[in-house]
């Protein structure tokens, strides 16, 4: 089947590098020299996913229990969610066991080593920017809020041209406002720019 496919000669494809937990020890050691002695959580942050699945399964089970389904016939509205919740709990336990027995540290491919695999500063910019966009959109209006999410995302991605980004952001959100709001009749909020003072 698909198991013995060759790896491209020069370098593995960009999107795949994240899953290379099966690399030989030697290579991984060279990439991240401080792989040992990083404590229990090194490579075990993947426990987050089983935890999330457990929480979701419990949500399904508890939610199913409180459905007021007294007089419905046998496969009622509780039936399916309870199956899902139980399956979810079993899966979460198996996944957690797997992570505990064999941690999955991700090989660092850039040749440098970082404290965490993910760049939380970048992430915070993007998530924060989008959060601000979502909350401020009705008040700021589409043009300003859209420019805000664009600028924060670009900054989070490492753009070092803030002024250029502001101009691009305002240009793009204005174009969208004109095309979709004015042209196609989509209800985009005009906010404080629309005379809301």
């Amino acid at each position: 089947m698909t198991d013995d496919r060759p790896v491209p000669a020069e370098h593995s494809a960009a999107g795949q590098s994240d899953g290379d937990a099966e690399q030989p020890e030697g290579e991984r050691g060279a990439a991240a020299p401080s792989a040992e002695g990083q404590g229990f959580w090194h490579g075990r942050s993947a426990l987050l996913m089983p935890a999330l699945l457990t929480a979701f399964s419990l949500f399904l089970l508890i939610g199913a229990a409180v459905i007021p389904a007294g007089d419905t016939d046998f496969p009622g509205p509780r039936f399916f969610p309870i199956i899902l919740g139980c399956a979810g709990l079993v899966l979460a336990a198996l996944l957690a066991l797997g992570v505990l027995r064999t941690p999955e540290p991700v090989a660092e491919t850039s040749g440098r080593s970082f404290r965490t695999h993910s760049d939380f500063v970048s992430l915070a910019w993007v998530v924060g920017g989008f959060l601000a966009f979502a909350l401020l959109l009705p008040w700021l209006g589409w043009i300003l809020a859209g420019a805000l999410v664009f600028w924060c995302t670009a900054h989070g991605f490492g753009s070092r041209r803030p002024l250029f980004d502001i101009l691009t952001a305002l240009f793009l959100s204005s174009v969208i406002y004109l095309v979709f709001g004015t042209g196609l009749g989509l209800n985009l909020p005009s906010g404080i720019l629309g005379g809301g003072f």
């Binding site: 859209g146 999410v149 995302t153």
Partner: peptide, 13 residues
Amino acid sequence: PQLYAGIALFCGL
């Protein structure tokens, strides 16, 4: 940066 910023904006739109 500009490419993905644009995509984020379009998600919101």
